[in-house]
Structures are given as C-alpha cells and as structure tokens.
Design a protein around this nucleic acid. Structure first.
Lengths: 329, 329
DNA sequence: ATTAGCACTTAGGAAAAATAAGTGCTAGGA
DNA sequence: TCCTAGCACTTATTTTTCCTAAGTGCTAAT
C-alpha cells in the first residue's frame, strides 16, 4: 500500500516523464512537494524496491517501470475530457447520418490520429465471426463481373472476376444457390462448403462449372481474414523513443502487419476500455495499446490507439471513451 | 563524348557503388582495367569535371552523381533478364485467368517488392480520366445499402450508405436516372452533375429527395481521386541511405501519401519505361522511381518501383519490362 | 600517354579529460 | 521517529586530442 506522498511522487514522475522523456530527479520533484530532495530520494528508493520505478543507470533520475505505468493507469490517472474544439471536429463526422458506421469510425479515427500523433486501428471481427449474409453479382461486360459479399456484421467486400462462356442464367442460379444454402456460414468456412454443397449441384447443369466454382472459391478465399484499418502508421516516427531506433520502428511496423498480433487485440473479450502497457501489448516493450470493443446493432468491432509506452494515458482513454459512446448510439 | 575507358570506369563505379554504398577509389578500379591507379585518377578527375562523378570529401573515392546515374541508365546499362525462379513465381499469378487485371497486378507487384526489397506502386487513372460506367445499388437491410460504382476503365468501388424512409422504388428510379443521364461523365464531375441533372428531377417525385441526393453526392465525392496501391512501404527502411536518417524516411513516407506527387508520376505520358533519378523523382534526392504505363483493353494505369538512387537499375528495368509485357497480353 | 612516388586531406574511431546531473548514506536536528 | 543538509561517489554525455586508413592531386620520370 502506497502512502499518499508516494502516490503523489509516482504520479508526478509518470506525468513528467510522459511530457518529456528524461529521467526525473529528486530535486525537481521536491519543488512540487512540501519536503526536501533527500526525503524524495528515500521515497523513490522505496518505490523502486516496490518495482514501480527504474533507474537508467546507478546515478540517474527515475523512470516509471511497466508496473509503475500500470499503477498510474489503474489508480492515479485522472481522466481528461476532450477539449471543445477537438470534440467539434469529431461531432461533424458523427452527425452525418448517411455515413455507414464503418466510414464514420474510419474518419473519426483519422482525426484522432492527427490530433494525438498516435497510430489508430479499427478491427472488424475476424472472418470466422462474420457470417455470410448474401452475395450479389453485378455484370460489368461480356466476361467481367463484380461479386459483392455482405456479412451479417455489416462488413462488405467486392471482388472482380472474369468468366468465359458462362451464361448469366447460370450465374444467377449459382448465386441464389449460395444465398439459399450457404448464407449463415462463417466466411472462412464458405470455401469448403462451396465444394461440398454447391459444386455437386452446379456440376449437373452448368457447362463451365469447374471455372465457376473456382472463381467463387477464390473470391471467398481471398476474403480478408480480418477487416483491418490502420491510420497514421508513420506517427510512430514522431515519437522520440523510436525516431532514434530503426530496429524498433521496423519491429513495430512488422507487428502491425502481423495478423496474429492484431487478432489477439480483437480477441480480448472485455467490453470496457483496456490498456496494454509495454510488454503487455505484444508489439514492443515501448509500445502501449489502448483499445475498446464497440457494438452498434449487429455491427461490432474493436478500435485501438497505439502509441509509445509514454502515451498520454489520461487523454487517450478519455478520447476512446468518447468515441465508444458516440459509436454505440 | 566519353572515351571507351571513361565509360568503363563510370560503369564500374556505378555498379560497384550500387552493390555497396562506399565511395570507390582508384586502386580497386585499376585492378579491373589495364592501367595504373594514377591513370584511373586522371580519368576520374575528368569525369568529375563533366559532372558525372562526385566526391564526398576532398580525399574520398568517387560516387556517381545524378548525371552519372543518368548516363549509366541511358548509355551503359545492360538489361538483366529475370532469373527463372522469379519468373515462375510471377507466372503463377499471370496464368490465373479468373483474376481481375487489378488483382493480378497487385499480386505480382507484391511479389516483386519482396524479391527486390523495393516499394512498388500501382496507379489507376485519376478520377477525371475515369468515366462513370454504371452504378448499382444492392439493399442490405431496412436502411442500409451498398452502392457499387463501376468506371469505364474497370475500376470498381463500393460504399455503404443509410437512407431513412426511401422506398426501393425511389432508389431504383434514381439509379436508373443516373445510369441513363450521367454515365460517361468523368467521376470527379459526377457530384456536380447530380446537382443539376438529377436533383431537379427526383425533387418532383421522391419524398426524401434531399437525403437521397446527399447520399449519392457523398458517395461520388468520397470516390478516391486516384486508385493507389502501395506495397512494401517499409522496404525503404532496409536501404542503408535511409536506415540512418529518420528525416529522410519521414519525408519519403509523407511523399508517398501526397496525391500530387503520385499524380505527377501518372501524368507522364510516355508509354515506355521511364527512370526518374534522385531529384527527378520529386520524392527525395536519394530516391529513384522507375515506372511504365500499361494498357489492356480499356483498363490502363501505371506501375512503378521506388527505391534508393542506388537502385539495381538493370534488374528493375528488366522486371518492369516483363511485367508490362505480361499485363498487356 | 602512363605511372611511380609522395605530400597532403579528411573521415572516423579510440582514448582522455572535463562536466553535469543525480544518487546513497551519514549525522545532526525537530 | 521522521526529516534534511551535506558530501563522496557514480555514470552518461560532451569535448578535445590523437591516430589511422583510405584516397587524392601533382610532379617528375619513363
């Protein structure tokens, strides 16, 4: 259990370090407290023993440890409300009734990324959680057509395909077969269902059934395993802990492409705002991910803000709360 | 006019420097020539006077100047054929008949980016060169629907919109009005045409005409001004001239988001392969862009490979030639 | 024309020295 | 018992100095 003074010191150190990434010394802190630097030093030593602070070298000031940030986020942080100007910018997007939810989210996260200089991510549900709702084929010309795939969670994708010597009758028939027999199936199982439920049937009366089957097979196979939208990747370059360290940048960029990592963010079933600090983020020891699930009607997904461990937690959590509220109504 | 020996020296320097980015000295070169290092030094001095070589400091070896690379590309370079293994990888993509052209290109450029460690770009024509071919509306549920926009150049986009209290009759009617009256219009002019040609008509018999008009207006307004696909952005981080220089990286990343820059690549009307070296690239003095237009039926666009000025010109030009050939038939 | 030889230049790395920031600990005071 | 002034000590950082390796330009001889 921390004393009031210890908490105050920890809070000061975290907030100071977030503003400016240099280790914090006892002298500056004593100015904000009613005690001498020597006393602060003693307290800091205790906090270090508790694992909440760290030194970069024997005689350096203190830096928050991962546990220190954790304690700050869980116990000390005071949420920051968004300022009116920023709110207004977002309201313009939220007020637009004609926008599909996914566009609303993309646009608002774009704005947030610019305001904060952090990377933002939207994740739809993964393809095994999306059930096929319907497909539609729109002919373009002789050979080409567009296949539209709609899932129950409101996710839409289109793919262009080419078919030779297949009549529009045959296509229509196949489409309605798929809509009748396969709708409701998780997207990532559709390809295999096609093989066992559609292929045998169309084999009987579609001349080019092999080709038709192949085309649809690929359409579903290429369906993105996860609906991901990352905005402001390069914001990471602005953060001092990365701008001197190409290896870290490469690592972060690569992790952002890694389906498994993104998936694990989405998999977390907590509906509230959750903060993954440093190692917890699975991205990089110096990265923090703050995320929340959202649900609006049958559309659901995850939004996340990714920044350095030195992220402005109070501000970002506030923003995410605001986003979630607005999305959900 | 360069002597044969001077050309040989220039070629050696360029190729050596591309392999390994350290200034090339006279001693190493003399080993590849039938003359002493002193002679090479004299020739190098001449080449420097001609502006084809540069020194990094008074007593350093030589580095090709922009003009040096230019001379190399225009006069000295011997095209390199792709190796069989790489060719095979690409053939698998090109052989797939069901893939739409744009998917074929995306996939093959992905492969090329991996093989070369350079960034690749596909550019469709800009929105004023794409004429609206048709739109199609697919209802999803009570309120939501997907609008599919198809251009004459084969570019397809979809947008989800929401409409309250608009009957499917009214929508159908509006869609067919648009298809009849506005098809053939450059995409970026559609919004304004909607206002003058569609709005007045639907105003008469669609109850929620304002809302309907707004929805379509936004759909076309949000239509990407250019169909861009960038693959392997982070490959740039692998190049030594960037991996030590965050500012350069930021600059390049920012330029890659800049519509004007990309547009100027696409605007160039040369149908052959074109090489923009350093400053010519408008991206960065250390960046080279190699691009070519392609045309297949009515689909056309530009593909480009972006790498350091120290790019393997012979290899990349060869690849791009191969790509172009395959795309065009 | 070519080349051997040599004085000269510069970047880059290692070592040494100076500086600044901050710590832990001791001993005295409230 | 808690707090604090004071001081010796540690370490990163910066600056300075020195050294080396690589390569050049120029001159004089072939």
């Amino acid at each position: 259990m921390l004393s009031e003074r210890q908490e105050k010191i920890l809070k000061l150190i975290v907030e100071k370090y977030i503003k400016d990434p240099i280790p914090v010394g006892s002298k500056v802190l004593s100015k904000h407290l009613k005690c001498s630097s020597a006393t602060v030093r003693n307290e800091m030593a205790t906090l270090e023993e508790l694992g909440l602070l760290e030194k970069t070298h024997t005689s350096s000031g203190r830096v928050p440890s991962e546990a220190g940030y954790r304690y700050y986020v869980d116990n000390l942080m005071e949420l920051k409300k968004m300022n009116a100007e920023d709110m207004l910018k977002l309201q313009i997007v939220f007020k637009n009734q004609q926008l599909a939810l996914s566009d609303t989210i993309t646009k608002s996260l774009q704005i947030i990324s610019d305001m904060t200089n952090y990377t933002t991510i939207t994740l739809g549900l993964s393809s095994h959680e999306n059930l096929l709702k319907q497909i539609e084929v729109v002919p373009i010309d002789e050979e080409s057509m567009v296949v539209l795939i709609v899932t129950d969670k409101g996710h839409v994708e289109h793919k262009s395909i080419k078919l030779q010597d297949v009549s529009s009758e045959e296509i229509k028939k196949t489409v309605s077969l798929i809509n009748n027999l396969i709708a409701g199936t998780p997207i990532d199982e559709v390809s295999s269902k096609l093989e066992f439920e559609i292929k045998p049937i169309i084999g009987n009366y579609v001349k080019q059934h092999e080709q038709l089957y192949n085309a649809f097979y690929h359409v579903f196979n290429d369906f993105s395993t996860q609906d991901v939208n990352i905005v402001g990747r390069t914001k990471m370059l602005e953060q001092p802990e990365f701008s001197n360290n190409i290896e870290k940048i490469k690592n972060v960029f690569n992790k952002l492409e890694d389906k498994d990592i993104l998936n694990s963010i989405e998999q977390d079933d907590d509906n509230n705002i959750k903060v993954y600090i440093g190692g917890e983020s699975k991205i990089d020891d110096d990265v923090t991910v703050i995320k929340t699930k959202f649900k609006n009607g049958n559309e659901e997904g995850t939004i996340a803000i990714i920044g350095p461990k030195r992220m402005e937690y109070d501000r970002v959590v506030g923003m995410l709360e605001y986003m979630k509220e607005n999305i959900e109504r």
